[in-house]
């Protein structure tokens, strides 16, 4: 069947098997292997992408269900050579080690800050509790999301955002 999905602002149309999972559809698009697969059962969150702005686990959604919807992946976070504050925050606060969960964590964090620009640590922990990180023990991820929230707020007030990496 033909399925047409907007992935990171670009229309992607492909003839697929009806059973194809969204995570596989995304990963078979050239250059978009940032969305990972980790568990099959919606537990680990390595596959989180944004569907119309809301975080979803792309391993448990059929690509066919996304016809006409907009998907955002980790590759869309950096814009015009500028990192998203959540990306910068993860670097600043050493919130990643092996990096495998990072894309899912980043998209989850992005969705949280879009919804709640000034979350408490508890709200951050709840927001990322659908995702597993085996390396960091989450402490620095919470700190990174706080960093992003604070710097995003500062940027809105014209203080700008330090850019490295």
């Amino acid at each position: 069947m033909d399925v047409s999905i907007v992935v990171n602002g670009k229309q992607v149309t492909r003839d697929i098997e009806p059973r194809q999972l969204l995570v596989h559809f995304i990963r078979e698009t050239p250059g978009l292997t940032g969305t990972h697969w980790g568990c099959d059962t919606s537990n680990c969150g390595a596959c989180v992408v944004l569907m119309d702005g809301a975080p979803v686990k792309s391993c448990t959604i059929l690509a066919a269900m996304c016809e006409g919807h907009e998907i955002r992946t980790v590759e869309s976070l950096e814009r015009d050579g500028r990192l998203d504050p959540v990306q910068q925050g993860f670097h600043e606060r050493h919130a990643l080690q092996c990096g495998f969960c990072t894309p899912g964590m980043l998209m989850t964090a992005r969705a949280l800050l879009d919804e709640n620009p000034d979350p408490t640590d508890e709200e951050i922990r709840i927001a990322i509790s659908g995702a597993i990180c085996r390396c960091t023990g989450y402490k620095n991820i919470v700190s990174a999301v706080r960093w992003a929230a604070e710097h995003e707020a500062a940027a809105k007030h014209g203080d700008g955002l330090r850019q490295e990496v």
């Binding site: 990963r27 940032g34 590759e75 990192l83 993860f90 990643l96 990096g99």
Partner: peptide, 19 residues
């Protein structure tokens, strides 16, 4: 020192086996 390897991982540009 902040990590050198972060640059690719935060962009989803790591190269894991299945990639």
């Amino acid at each position: 020192l902040k990590r050198k390897e972060d640059a690719r991982f935060i962009r989803g540009q790591g190269t894991y086996l299945d990639d």
